[in-house]
Design a protein around this nucleic acid. Structure first.
Ligand SMILES: [Zn+2]
Ligand SMILES: [Zn+2]
Ligand SMILES: [Zn+2]
Ligand SMILES: [Zn+2]
Lengths: 160, 160
DNA sequence: ACTAGTATGTTATATTATAACAATTATGTT
DNA sequence: AACATAATTGTTATAATATAACATACTAGT
């Protein structure tokens, strides 16, 4: 499940990256006046520990194996729903999987580059993509509430 | 399952729209030297008959009810896979559903505006969106093989 | 301590999708 | 036409993802 080179596209220390993500999450939840419980924090950590999108049942399996917590699906899905609501993770629709948000303090839509070789997934922050979608929607008098952009292909590390 | 105003975003006669879609499909398949069988044609027609994305099990239900054809899931999924391969339909990942392609003769990625009130779904053809995504991917040296853009919101007809 | 609200546990089930193998149908060759 | 081959569809079973409904436990404010 782990990628060959998890830090390929985001050169940094992964442990400290997780730690800072969890810290940010604490702040976000404090500001939003919601409770980042032990379970929710743990699920967020597991999602962050993987640079590949993680499925709900993958999370369940880790909880069972590493925590001895025999949780049922609703437990995990509720935690994921909470994290989604707080903008701490994104759902990748094309993979039925979840990934940590790289900038939860600034609300935004999720644009992703997904490598179909190694699974690594990078969150894009592109104003140009955002603007072009907004303009296109405007042409049709369509009022946007949520955008999903998922680009599948080959990451630099997996190119020959 | 049918929308209140299926022709809202695409003002045309729906029957003739379906007919022309099926005709185009015949041509595409002839050119590609593949067989658009009775089943495949029927599934394509059902997908086209709905301006809302249609689920595989919705199709199964119609086949059972209208055609007395007690097909099992693989039958429908295989037909859908064929239609996807030939570019005659798109899959909407966020809805686990399928919709007819508005321009199967010219290969392209699927960009969609999806109304969360009435379900109507419009396929965008936007070079600007396409270019902006390509540029963003290029910045990361990411080689695109497939793009998905799904924009959820409120269509003009459903606005107050 | 009491209460209301929030979160989690638990059981059952719904929804979407595929694997594996059998039967049928279409196509090209003798 | 008879045959061999490949493509398509049928059939059964099951995998993978997600939610409904209700019970229990925990938290925070009174
Ligand atoms: Zn994000
Ligand atoms: Zn890769
Ligand atoms: Zn299309
Ligand atoms: Zn609408």
């Amino acid at each position: 499940m782990n990628t060959k080179n998890p830090t390929a596209l985001t050169p940094h220390n992964h442990d400290s990256c997780i730690a800072s993500a969890l810290e940010k999450a604490q702040q976000v939840c404090q500001r939003n006046n919601v409770r980042l419980t032990e379970l929710r924090l743990r699920v967020l950590e597991l999602v962050w520990r993987s640079h590949k999108p993680l499925g709900a049942y993958d999370i369940l399996a880790v909880l069972a194996k590493e925590d001895g917590r025999n949780a049922a699906p609703p437990t995990v899905y509720r935690a994921l729903d909470f994290l989604l609501e707080q903008g701490l993770i994104h759902r990748i629709a094309s993979l039925n999987a979840f990934i940590g948000c790289s900038d939860p303090e600034c609300p935004h839509q999720g644009y992703f580059l997904i490598c179909n070789q190694c699974g690594i997934t990078l969150e894009l922050h592109s104003d140009k993509v955002s603007k072009s979608i907004q303009r296109a929607a405007l042409e049709y008098d369509f009022q946007i509430s949520h955008e999903m952009v998922e680009v599948v292909g080959v990451c630099p590390n997996c190119k020959v």
